[in-house]
Computed example of a mutant assay.
Amino acid sequence: MKLNIDIVDAFTSTQFGGNSAAVITTDTWLTENLMQSIAAENNLSETTFLVPVESGVYDIRWFSPLTEIAFCGHATLASAFVLFNKNPTFQQVTLSAPAVGSMLINKLDKGYIEMDFPSFAPKAIQDIPEALIAGLSIRPQQVLKNQQAYFAVYNSEFDVRAVEQSSEQLKQLAPFDVVVTAPGEIYDFVSRYFWPANGGDEDPVTGSIHTGLAPYWSIRLGKKELHAYQASKRGGEIMCIIDKDRVKLRGQAVHYLSGSIEV
């Protein structure tokens, strides 16, 4: 069986920046074992599978090299980028996944794509896991948590960029990942994302976690629109807009590869 595949760098305007995702569209779902095997072979942060429901409407699933992921923002951006490029008349698409429901995706000017997600604001916790403290080389000032990850909050961007993580310790927090964040010097806030239990040591740019980061920093900074930067080696920029109980994320993407795979 031959499958078409596209690889896109998301949350960047420059090739080889942002976070890469593979996008595959099929008429019906492949088996879970096959989708996971393809994702492991691709060895990208995520491989996305799309199945059309009707014109402009698709079901979506995301797989890291290790497991299926409930919600992935950068691969959603990559998927919309591919759909818009292959269907030039589309100005809007709807993607649907159980964990987040229907996601309305709009094509904007200057290559930007806007995604409309539920807000997953974190809540402060008092009982901080020992594995979290042991797993980060710099102790955070505050720790919060949502359904996806622990939020380790620091006072400075320097700490976010300097902190080192122990994968063996952070794996003990599974199924939760860890995001470290602080106010930015140029951007409203910066972050890094560690996910050894679900994908790899550090994710280059993580759209999904910004549905928690943006509401948190919106309250702290008193702003509804925020410019965020994920300070990984590849780096990525995300525009965040708070709209009641929704978070809109805007970003750009760059095409890297189109091809086919034999399975």
Rank of each mutant, 00 (worst) to 15 (best):
L3E: 01
I5A: 08
I5V: 15
D6N: 11
D9R: 01
A10V: 09
A10P: 06
F11W: 04
T12L: 07
T12E: 09
S13Q: 15
G17L: 07
N19A: 11
N19C: 11
A21T: 10
I24H: 03
D27V: 09
E32K: 00
N33S: 12
L34C: 13
I38K: 07
N42V: 10
N43I: 11
N43R: 14
T48A: 14
V53M: 13
V53T: 13
G56F: 10
W62M: 07
T67G: 07
A70C: 11
A70N: 13
C72G: 05
C72K: 01
G73Q: 03
A78F: 07
A78K: 06
S79I: 05
F81Q: 11
F81P: 04
L83P: 04
L83W: 00
P88G: 09
P88I: 08
F90I: 04
F90Y: 15
Q91I: 11
V93M: 09
L95F: 09
S96F: 09
P98L: 08
A99H: 07
A99F: 08
S102P: 12
M103A: 03
I105F: 07
I105V: 15
N106P: 03
G111W: 12
D116K: 00
F117W: 04
F117H: 03
P118Q: 08
F120M: 12
A121E: 09
A124D: 15
I125W: 05
D127L: 13
D127F: 00
E130R: 07
A131K: 11
A131E: 14
L132S: 02
L132W: 02
A134W: 10
A134Y: 12
I138Y: 06
Q141T: 12
N146Q: 08
Q148H: 09
A149D: 12
Y150S: 05
Y150L: 08
F151V: 02
Y154P: 04
D159G: 02
D159F: 00
R161I: 09
S166W: 07
S167I: 08
S167V: 11
E168W: 03
Q169N: 11
L170D: 02
D177A: 09
V180C: 02
A182S: 05
P183C: 08
E185K: 14
I186Y: 14
D188C: 06
S191T: 02
R192Q: 04
P196M: 07
N198W: 02
G200R: 08
G200T: 13
S208D: 01
S208R: 02
I209W: 06
I209R: 04
L213W: 06
L213C: 03
L213Y: 05
P215T: 03
Y216K: 06
I219K: 15
K223T: 10
K224H: 00
K224Q: 03
K224G: 12
H227Y: 14
K233N: 15
I238Q: 01
M239T: 14
I242P: 02
D243T: 12
L249A: 04
H255L: 13
Y256V: 15
L257W: 15
L257Y: 15
L257R: 07
G259P: 07
G259D: 07
S260L: 00
I261P: 03
I261C: 07
V263D: 05
